Simulated assay, not measured.
Amino acid sequence: MQHVSIGQASDLLGVAVSTLQRWEQEGRLRPAFRTCGGHRRYSLLQLNQLCGKSSPEQRKVVAYAMVSSHDQKADLQRQRDRLEQHCLAVGYANPELLTDLGSGLNYQKKSFKKLLKMIAQGKVSTLVLMHKDRLLRFGADIVFELCKLNHTEVVILEEPVNTSLENRLVADVIELMTVFSARLYGARSRENRHLAA
């Protein structure tokens, strides 16, 4: 789809249809052409440039891998290898591989923040993940909605094995306890070092 209607253009730009009509009268943004019925059609390339988003040719494939602790570095390498193999097998040219070491509850991981920024700027055509929870333990659906809004395809290589609700809840509670225990002991450790100094 290279051209969109005025309604779709207003959604993409986040402005009212009347604003686009006014911009046309002012010469700020003109439609690429009008249909035989007189309907405006706007160029996606022009709209993306106006938003500061990348053109389709500049969008890239990004593969993302994450583990929560240093003792899982072997798993991180396994994820990297599997993601690279998949990208090569399906013919993705020059995919960018981002990795993080940190909890699935940590939203401040460096590569995760970079990934979010790239998606929001329209720079990612495809996001490749090993598992859904390799992105975030909770809240991955929000990122997937952001992908949808920015026309980013999400590819998940391995769907989780069907586990019971009870087992998933136990895993989630353990993850929460681990993260909050680490924060508590980290805070106490800093406090003790401060008192000793």
Rank of each mutant, 00 (worst) to 15 (best):
Q77E: 04
R78P: 06
Q79T: 01
Q79F: 02
Q79G: 04
Q79A: 12
R80M: 13
R80D: 05
R80Q: 06
D81V: 13
R82L: 11
R82I: 06
L83D: 03
E84W: 14
E84I: 14
Q85P: 05
Q85H: 08
H86N: 09
H86V: 09
C87Y: 01
C87S: 09
A89K: 15
A89E: 15
V90G: 08
G91W: 03
G91C: 14
P95I: 14
P95H: 11
E96D: 07
L97G: 08
L97N: 01
L98P: 00
L98E: 03
T99G: 08
D100G: 05
D100T: 04
D100L: 01
L101G: 00
L101S: 11
G102W: 08
G104I: 03
G104H: 04
L105Q: 09
L105D: 03
L105Y: 12
N106T: 10
N106Y: 08
Y107M: 12
Q108Y: 07
K110F: 11
K110N: 10
S111C: 06
F112K: 00
F112N: 04
K113W: 03
K113A: 08
K113I: 09
K113E: 08
K113S: 06
K114G: 13
L115N: 04
L115S: 05
L116F: 07
L116Y: 09
K117W: 10
K117Y: 11
I119W: 00
I119S: 02
I119Y: 00
I119P: 01
A120D: 15
A120N: 15
A120I: 12
Q121F: 10
G122C: 07
K123T: 10
V124Y: 01
S125L: 13
S125Y: 07
S125E: 14
S125H: 13
T126A: 13
L127V: 03
V128A: 05
V128K: 10
L129G: 03
M130I: 04
M130L: 11
H131V: 01
H131D: 06
H131Q: 14
H131W: 11
K132I: 04
K132S: 03
R134D: 04
L135W: 01
R137P: 04
F138H: 08
G139E: 04
A140I: 02
A140C: 13
D141Y: 07
I142T: 04
I142H: 07
I142K: 06
V143W: 01
V143A: 00
F144W: 08
F144A: 07
F144K: 09
E145S: 13
E145Y: 14
L146A: 11
C147G: 05
C147N: 00
C147F: 01
L149I: 08
L149A: 12
H151D: 15
H151F: 06
